[in-house]
């Protein structure tokens, strides 16, 4: 924990921590929903055509990794807020 001497520095610290937490928390909602969508549709497709499981798993992982990107942006921004700024 950093040393705080005045009210202004305490407010800046408070803003940093609240900002990083809110950024990561809200930013995790979108990728969560998107990955759930992709996973559920892939499960439906696998149940319909069990012989395609190998291909579908690879495609599912690929598109989930692409969906994750926005969550990673918010992770990067919250790390920047916490540790760099």
């Amino acid at each position: 924990m950093e040393n705080v001497n005045s009210v202004a520095q305490a407010l800046v610290l408070m803003g940093k921590y609240i900002g990083a937490g809110v950024c990561m928390g809200i930013g995790a909602i979108g990728p969560g929903i998107a990955e759930g969508h992709v996973g559920s549709k892939a499960m439906e497709a696998m149940a319909r055509q069990p012989e395609m499981v190998g291909t579908l798993t690879t495609r599912m992982l690929l598109s989930q990794a692409v969906c994750e990107t926005t969550g990673l942006y918010s992770l990067l921004i919250s790390i920047l807020i916490l540790l760099v700024v």
């Binding site: 990794a65 990107t69 990673l72 990067l76």
Partner: peptide, 16 residues
């Protein structure tokens, strides 16, 4: 930009 930041975020965030 999105192409590079995706890889960077995954690897750097994972390491941290």
């Amino acid at each position: 930009i999105s192409h590079s930041l995706r890889l960077f975020g995954n690897v750097a965030g994972g390491a941290m």
